[in-house]
């Protein structure tokens, strides 16, 4: 037997907290150059927000918030973004993962900054996708047994 928590405390605090957790996750992903954090930590925090919703909301609501097919696409898309940007640099004559050769506006450091931001979002999407995937898998195992 597994289902959403019936506790009103859990629901009220969870609904209060989820937007802030999501915002903090995106902040950690986008702020990864300057401080502790980055795609991995931020992706896990975004996944925590989704898992809180899975824990407190009824199943139809939580699957509308984050469809169960989405984690796979996030994993594939995030990994594809990372590898794609890295290999795309070769197309403009640089080395693999040499972001300065990409045709983005600005000087070298600005181009590296923009493309590292994209790569961080790719890593974050892949990590959050895999975390939610693992949670859904475990929950479905428990539900079916």
């Amino acid at each position: 037997m597994i289902g959403p928590h019936s506790s009103p405390n859990m629901r009220v605090i969870g609904i209060l907290v989820v937007p802030f957790v999501l915002m903090f996750g995106v902040y950690v992903i986008a702020h990864g150059h300057y401080g502790p954090g980055g795609g991995f930590a931020g992706g896990v925090i975004v996944a925590v927000a989704v898992i809180i919703v899975r824990m407190i909301a009824p199943r139809n609501l939580s699957e509308r918030f984050f469809p169960p097919g989405l984690p796979l696409w996030l994993m594939v898309g995030g990994m594809g973004l990372f590898v794609g940007i890295g290999v795309l640099a070769v197309a403009w004559g640089g080395d693999v993962l040499d972001y300065a050769s990409l045709p983005l506006p600005g000087d070298d450091s600005r181009r590296r900054y923009l493309s590292i931001l994209l790569v961080e979002f790719g890593v974050g999407a892949a990590v959050s996708g895999s975390m939610v995937f693992i949670f859904d898998l475990l929950a479905s195992l428990e539900r079916d047994s």
């Binding site: 928590h5 405390n9 859990m10 907290v17 802030f20």
Partner: peptide, 17 residues
């Protein structure tokens, strides 16, 4: 503020389950 909100809630959820 968030630790004050979340810490008791998490423990409540654990004990309840």
């Amino acid at each position: 503020v968030f630790a004050f909100l979340v810490n008791p809630t998490a423990t409540h959820a654990l004990a309840r389950v």
